[in-house]
Structure formats: structure tokens, C-alpha cells
Write a protein that binds this DNA or RNA. Structure first.
Lengths: 187, 187
DNA sequence: TGTAACATGTAAGTCGTTACATGATTAA
DNA sequence: TTAATCATGTAACGACTTACATGTTACA
């Protein structure tokens, strides 16, 4: 469901091809809902079948012919209806935490290594997000006080991403300390 | 993949039936990987086929016959191998944040209502988790300083859950303030 | 008499991943 | 000539959801 509406949401901003949508996913909704080309193309076909988007085939010189998708009024209505529906609480799925759950079965040194890898991954994400935030702020589009209408969703989502990654790294630091004690105790 | 090893991890603690596993999922790994009965039963059949678990059929009086599953040595080896494999970074999937991304398309008042529902959901979860933590601490099994070996994974995961929900609620509060300004501006 | 807890499944369908497949243009 | 960017797909498979299906005992 979410992919469908992530696409409709992006098409509401501007008509574009599947290829362009894939690129837009990175740097926007993609932080919270990734998708591969195959999935996007398949979804676009379904959306077209259901008349939520329309297509225009545009031949190009020097490049392959592309299909530009646009939101139809039915698509806009569907998007609005979905946005205004309370979200059913969805299960959290964090593979790494499933591993953490069995950490007592591991050699503490190796567990520590895995945990540090995880921390690095999230440190990098945090860095990326804060960089994007800085650029947005410098461009004057957003700030804590005033945010351009069109940027609001992007900004709110970005701040959530930053908060999430920051908290994640903080937990990692604490967990690393917990495991270090165990390494000492076992040596 | 994760479900498979979540089950193996629980069976490593003690042999049990699919029905019991489902119950154990709540209050433990279930915070980070939920599963329905159907999925657990199906997975157990696959694990049995692959000799990672063994089964004993136990007739009961007063209750239906049950199948008690145990980890085999092959199952233990598979669990350890998985635990010690670096986790590939997995995509985040948060449906609500996909909605947030399109918030500029909504009436601010309605957006505020949806956001508050989301906040309530996470407030409740936070409350549940902190209650569980308090009970664990009172039982003497865990603390910031010393944690029983068998409890370590449970405790680390729980603290992650608490951190996540707390940060989520904090973001909601900030986002509510942002939207409130928009409601005022539009009235 | 009904419902909650115990106990286990099948079948159909959706969502997502991995692998396979094609082909043009541009810049190094 | 090699890689990157643009551009779009199919097919097989695995993970997960929803709906359907069955039967016992204990307790209110």
C-alpha cells in the first residue's frame, strides 16, 4: 500500500517517469520506503490500469523513449483519502534487534564487532541526514520557525530520520559499554 | 530470514510448541519481529524439514495433542552462524512517514488529528516498555550495572525499544507544534 | 450457552527481492 | 573500449497477510 501512495505523492509534485521516480525516492520518501526499479515499474502499470495515473509516451533524441506518468483526478482523490485515513499500527521489523536478542549466545568480542558495524552504518546515515538538513536550512527553505509549505513534509520527515538515527547511535554507545564489561569479565 | 532465527533463538532457551512460541514473541523478540500463528507453524515445518529442529508429539489429557519442538545441533550451528554474520543494512519502512511526506497536501487540522493518533499509539508502547523494564529491574535480573547473562539480549533490546518510542513521541510533540502554527496561519 | 485458552493447520493472494534481459548515448 | 546514465521490463521465488477450517476443555 505505502509504495502506491509514495508514488502518487511524488507524482502530485510533478509528472515524471519511473526512472525519475526511482531517483526521487532517494533523498525524500526513500528514507522511509525504498523501492527497486522493478517494483516501481510494476506499480506504475497497476496504477495506470486503475486509472490513478495517466501516461504519455515521449520519444527523445539521443535517449530511449520514455513514459511520463501524471496523477489523474482519481489518483489525487485516492491519495487524499489515504492520507486522511488513520494509520493502523504496523509491526516493527528490525532484523538486527532479533540478533541482539540472542546476544548472550555469542562470544562477547564478536558481538561487539557486529554492534560496532551497526553503529557505523547509522552514524553514516545520521551524517547524511544532517548534511541534507544543513543544505535545506542554508537555502532558506526551512527552519524551526518558518517552513515553506511545499517543504513541510520533507522537513518533518527529515527531522524524524535525524532523531531516529541519533537515538540509534546513542543506544549503540550504551550497548557497546555493556558488552565491553562482558569482554573484560570473560577474559 | 529473521523469523527463522527468531524462532531458533527462542527454542535455544527452551523447547516449546508453536503455540507457546507465538506467546513468547509478545514480550520479547516480538517487539522487533512479529509473526502470526500461520507463519510460525509454516516456518516450524520448514525448519523440521531442514533438520534444524526436532519434534516430539505429546498427547495431553484435557487438551489437544501438541508438538514440542527442540533445537537440533544443526539448528544451533545455523543460529550461531547467522548471529555472527554482519547484518546487511536493511531498508527502513515506516508507512506513517510516507504520509507525513505529503502532509502539505492535507488540511492542517486533519493532519494534526492523524499525528496525534500516531503519538498516542507510541505513548502507549513507551508506557508498556517502561513498565516491563521496571519489573525486570525490581526482579533484580537487570540493571545498568549488572545484568544476568541470560537476560542481556532481552534487556538490550528492551532499552532500544524504549529509546525508539521516547524519541518518536518527542518528534511528535515537535511536529504537532509545527502543524499548530499552520492551523493558526490558515484560520 | 457461550467464550476464552489451548492447539494446528490450508489456500489464495499481495508485496518485495533476486536474477535475467535489452539497448541507446555520452564521456573518460 | 569501458563504464555510467538513461530507460523499461519479465520470471521465479520468498515473506507475509487474510480468510477459511477444525476440535477440546474449563469456566462463568
Amino acid at each position: 500500500m505505502a509504495l502506491k501512495f509514495a508514488i502518487l505523492g511524488l507524482l502530485a509534485e510533478s509528472s515524471q517517469t519511473g526512472y525519475e521516480l526511482k531517483a526521487r525516492f532517494g533523498g525524500s520518501v526513500g528514507y522511509f520506503w525504498e523501492a527497486r526499479f522493478q517494483q516501481i515499474y510494476a506499480e506504475l502499470q497497476r496504477l495506470q490500469r486503475d486509472r490513478l495515473v495517466s501516461v504519455e509516451t515521449v520519444p527523445q533524441r539521443g535517449k530511449p523513449t520514455k513514459k511520463v506518468y501524471s496523477l489523474t483526478s482519481a489518483g489525487e482523490a485516492a491519495l487524499h483519502a489515504w492520507l486522511d485515513t488513520p494509520s493502523a499500527s504496523q509491526p516493527t521489523r528490525e532484523e538486527f534487534l532479533v540478533k541482539v536478542f540472542s546476544v548472550a549466545r555469542m562470544d562477547p568480542r564478536r558481538a561487539l564487532a557486529r554492534l560496532k558495524e551497526y553503529r557505523e552504518e547509522h552514524r553514516r546515515r545520521l551524517e547524511t541526514y544532517t548534511l541534507i538538513e544543513r543544505r535545506l536550512e542554508e537555502s532558506g527553505a526551512v527552519s524551526d520557525d518558518t517552513t515553506q509549505d511545499a517543504m513541510l513534509g520533507r522537513y518533518l520527515a527529515l527531522r524524524r530520520g535525524i532523531g531516529y538515527e541519533r537515538e540509534c547511535v546513542r543506544w549503540c554507545n550504551w550497548a557497546v559499554a555493556q558488552l565491553r564489561r562482558r569482554v573484560k569479565a570473560s577474559s
